[in-house]
């Protein structure tokens, strides 16, 4: 039998280490001291966009990422998926982060999940052959296009570009494909 008290007792022995807690508290204090998230002036943003360099924060280029992280002087969140960074050398970098995208098949339905937000795309796939999820804020434009691949399985392609840039026309957009998984409901 499931002994509830025994389970509760054992769970209450799980604790976050004091070191980790203190580390997080210290991080917030340091962040405040450094004023790393101070807002950029419009002129600076424009300059940054002129010298645009987009970095895919992915496993493909960990060395490049490591080098950049070690020289970041300031970082400003511009929207949900974009960070504008200033390096020690004065260079401006725009880093874009992909949303978490996955496709699941549940009881014959195809569910698109973008950062935990679920959308049933079955009807759109049946009627139009594709479904387009779009997001745009002051930092970036994102599209997730779901289509059926050659094997007849749904496939999602994610594209992201800095705000104001056309997806598809820009060579800066990057694409990933998600894996279809079947889950037990």
């Amino acid at each position: 039998m499931f002994d509830l008290n025994a389970y509760r007792e054992r769970c209450s022995e799980l604790h976050l280490s004091g070191e980790k807690l203190q580390e997080v508290i210290s991080m917030t204090e340091q962040a405040k001291k450094k004023s790393a998230r101070r807002p950029l002036r419009v002129g600076l943003v424009a300059a940054a966009l002129c010298a645009l360099l987009v970095i895919s924060v992915s496993a493909a280029n960990p060395e490049v990422l490591e080098g950049i992280v070690s020289t970041i002087r300031a970082s400003i969140a511009v929207g949900e998926y974009r960070q504008d960074m200033t390096l020690d050398t004065g260079e401006q970098i725009v880093a874009l982060a992909y949303p978490e995208v996955s496709l699941e098949e549940r009881g014959g339905r195809v569910i698109l999940i973008v950062d935990g937000e679920e959308t049933d795309v079955t009807d759109a796939l049946n009627e139009k052959g594709s479904y387009l999820w779009e997001y745009e804020d002051e930092g970036a434009s994102i599209q997730v296009k779901v289509t059926m691949n050659e094997e007849g399985k749904p496939e999602a392609v994610t594209s992201i570009v800095p705000a104001g840039t056309e997806i598809g026309e820009s060579g800066l957009s990057m694409v990933i494909e998600s894996v279809v998984t079947t889950t037990e409901e």
Partner: peptide, 11 residues
């Protein structure tokens, strides 16, 4: 070897 461990591992 406690009951709590057994239940916790099962969960």
């Amino acid at each position: 070897d406690t009951r709590g461990d057994e239940v916790f591992q099962a969960v």
